[in-house]
Design a binder for these strands. Structure first.
Length: 565
RNA sequence: CGGGGUGUGGCGCAGUUUGGUAGCGCACAUGCUUUGGGAGCAUGGGGCCGGAGGUUCGAAUCCUCUCACCCCGACCA
């Protein structure tokens, strides 16, 4: 591309309404522009990057035996009602109506349509397995879009689906996709980890997330400093500490005026947070249930939801709690509360604890859980903490932050049952098909790459996703020798299939250098005064070194750099 | 959904408290100079101040409503 007469622009100032390194750089470099909250335009340069990422994903999908197709975004709402997901997605799904007021949705993900499509082919066990995928826009009405391309409401996802006769088959199909994902993220040069995760709105048996490690990540990755344990915080198992303190005398009320939170109590009573028996009331599928746990731990709603196999887990309003229990908000305790109580495994053996008295301004001390508290169930209902023991090897747990760029699910038969996707086995008995689903966010991956590959000057694209590989800075367009040399270099590189920008604008050198760095082109060639002695300058974006190279050697040097990248 | 903030030329902002009919930087156009790290000087073009209604002789500025965008919260009582 020669820059004159092309749709190319950069911004010198930060975008006022962008809140992350990647979104700022992508906007400033003229690759994307916000259209409305959480919705972006992709400009020519940005689209090239997107397509490059897409192509790498496509290659790996095809290599893994998947076939590409394309589904509509506009889907009859009925389909999501049949699978029960209209409810699960709830307000996150974009709804609209046609002229006859028939309800439609903009697809948030496409398990249902793929199951329906698969029915066209699947009759017998002989028709399985197979795997299909697409690149398509997904729509999710996020309550708060954030961080540019990272949390958006419309985005391009590669979604693939596998169809097998049984779980053993699914294991094989899953492994193929899993390996394909590793290949993709390895090729993209991303620093990522794979963690176990909650199956969430997808349902099913297993979910693993590919997480790009990054400070602005919205997911907490639980890692072990000794072994390869890696999990999303949502599902990381807490190994209950065998902590037992001395048994005290009978429970005794203590006056704790205006001390409602754990923080206020630790301050007021001079005790550590873990001496408190924290009592939280959740509304689990509409039922008020109390959870007791050590005061220094946070409840984990995903675990609670799983424990009750519940669709919704929410914190009720204070009035709801006081109307539905014998408790007083701020002074809640499990004794005589009048609702079901679930005890976290970590408190079962505890003896010397303080909890709420269900009475304003009073708590109770000397609580021995086994002696004083009647609980209905027990289990792991809290988040793991840094410094806890690794559930796998006993090593120490550390946290990292991650951006979820890919997710693989062993779905099982949830969708095939809901949508009647069945096959006949050797004995002519019907069975639901076993499905897997595999998502990969293209725009989010692009943003994650920028988060991991930028400096104060701008983006530094890895070679294989860079919109162009070479940027020729023509210092003085009015100089015949310089103009001719850069023109020749430009044609030679393009003829070799090396996408090149020739900056032939009537701009000062500084402007061109800055733009080349901002938009992150990996190789820069400067054609300037050196041309008199037959040399140009070669510089890689990620290095500070500038090398003088003879004009007739530049092309082969560039080829070497690309080959070795 | 709750709290806070912001909407003024393509981009980034001032002006709003104390109403008097819009300004700065960048970008843009023209000319001269300059020319290897975001040039200088001069001249100039471009905005019904998010929208609607109201108060007033007069509204970017005050009042009411509304839309959009951003931030914090929606997690522990």
């Amino acid at each position: 591309m020669k820059l004159i007469n092309q749709f190319f622009y950069t911004l010198r100032q930060e975008a006022a309404d962008e809140d992350s390194t990647s979104s700022n750089l992508l906007v400033r470099s003229g690759m994307i522009k916000k259209s409305s909250s959480g919705v972006y335009m992709f400009m020519p340069l940005g689209l090239r990057v997107l397509k490059n990422i897409e192509e790498i994903v496509r290659e790996e999908m095809v290599k893994a035996g998947s076939q590409e197709l394309l589904m509509p975004s506009l889907v009859h709402k009925e389909i999501y009602e049949k699978s029960g997901r209209a409810q699960i997605f709830g307000p996150n799904i974009f709804k609209l109506a046609d002229r006859y007021e028939r309800p439609y949705v903009l697809g948030p993900t496409h398990e249902e349509l793929f199951a329906i499509a698969a029915k066209m082919k699947v009759n017998s066990y002989k028709d399985l397995p197979f795997n299909i995928f697409q690149f398509q826009n997904k729509f999710r009405d996020e309550p708060r879009p954030r961080y540019g391309l990272i949390r958006v409401r419309e985005f391009i996802m590669k979604d693939a689906y596998s169809f097998d006769a049984d779980m053993e088959g699914l294991d094989v199909s899953y492994k193929k996709m899993f390996d394909a994902y590793k290949n993709v993220f390895d090729r993209l040069g991303l620093n990522y980890v794979i963690v176990k995760a909650d199956t969430g709105a997808m349902g099913g048996h297993l979910s693993e997330e590919f997480q790009a490690v990054c400070d602005i990540g919205e997911d907490i990755l639980v890692m072990c400093d000794e072994c390869d344990y890696a999990s999303n915080l949502e599902v990381a198992e807490v190994i209950a500490e065998a902590k037992t303190d001395e048994i005290q005398g009978a429970p005794e009320e203590i006056h704790t005026p205006n001390a409602r939170t754990i923080d206020e109590l630790t301050e007021f009573l001079g005790l550590t947070a873990d001496s408190f028996l924290k009592t939280l009331v959740y509304k689990v599928d509409g039922e008020l249930i109390a959870f007791i746990m050590p005061g220094d731990r946070h409840a984990n709603e995903v675990k609670i939801g799983k424990m009750f196999n519940a669709l919704t887990v929410e914190l009720p309003e204070p009035e709801e709690i006081e109307n539905g229990t014998n408790g007083v908000v701020g002074y809640m305790g499990p004794i005589g509360l009048g609702i079901k109580v679930v005890a976290d495994s970590a408190v079962l053996e505890r003896n010397d604890m303080v909890t709420g008295a269900n009475k304003k301004d009073y708590h109770v001390k000397n609580i021995s859980v086994s002696r004083d508290v009647k609980y209905d169930m027990t289990g792991d209902v809290t988040n793991i903490k840094e410094g806890d023991k690794c559930p796998k090897c006993g090593g120490e747990i550390v946290f990292k932050k991650g951006i979820e760029v890919g997710n693989t699910f062993k779905l099982g038969t949830k969708y095939s049952e809901a949508l009647d996707l069945e096959y006949a086995d050797q004995k002519n008995t019907l069975h639901p098909v076993v499905m897997g689903s595999y998502g990969l966010g293209i725009g989010r991956t692009m943003a994650a790459i920028v988060e991991q590959n930028s400096d104060e000057k701008g983006i530094a694209w890895p070679m294989n996703v860079a919109p162009y590989k070479v940027y020729i800075v023509l210092i003085r367009a009015s100089d015949e020798a310089q103009a001719q040399a850069s023109e020749k270099l430009y044609s030679e590189l393009n003829a070799l299939g090396i996408d090149t920008i020739l900056d032939d604008r009537d701009e000062r050198a500084g402007v061109k250098f800055n733009d080349a760095e901002l938009i992150g082109i990996p190789i820069r060639v400067t054609v300037g005064r050196g041309i008199a002695s037959g040399v140009v300058e070669l510089k890689e974006r990620k290095s500070d070194e500038v090398n003088e190279v003879a004009l007739d050697e530049v092309v082969s040097k560039i080829q070497d750099i690309i080959k070795n990248s």
